[in-house]
Amino acid sequence: MKELLELYLAFLRIGAVNFGGGYAMLPLLERDLNEKRHWTTTEELMDYFAIGQCTPGVIALNVSTFIGYKRKKIPGALAATLGFLTVPILIILVISAFLTNFADLPVVKNAFAGIRVCVCVLIFQAVLRLWKKSVPDNIALILYLVIFGITVCSGLLPFKVPAAVLVIAAGVFGVVWQTAKERRRQG
């Protein structure tokens, strides 16, 4: 019970400050769950994000469920997910009830313009930290560059490639490449 409460509270804290969507969650997870509590490893976090990208639902929730399940099976998954949801639900209920013009308030606009700068920096630093473990060799680097290029230029391309398709293709490529490498080594 104590561990479930701990899970709930850890994700409540992350949910309360997770501005800017699922990927902005990564620096917080790294700090709170990886470095401080050793609940996950960097590799696991990367795997969760990759899978969260090609399964239904909000990525942040998928990642919460994954980590919760890893700690304490189904009760853990529920505790982490509810923890992550708690503060956003409360904030939106308060805003919808009292502050219909919330997003137009100058103080909100200015504060968030500042927060966005910070979110960029945090994501950039997370990428630097995760780089070595996620991109171990040149083949992985090429894969990174191709997917990065397609995703960043998605607005300029004449066709749209859904993120889920890219992720699945990368997984299939991993299997094909590693199997071929194995064969060459043996043959």
Binding site: E43, A50, I123, V127, A140, T151, A170, G174, W177
Partner: peptide
Amino acid sequence: SAFYGLRPASIAMISA
């Protein structure tokens, strides 16, 4: 092997 491909994909999307 699948994760060997998934990890660079994941970090590419985070960078994007």
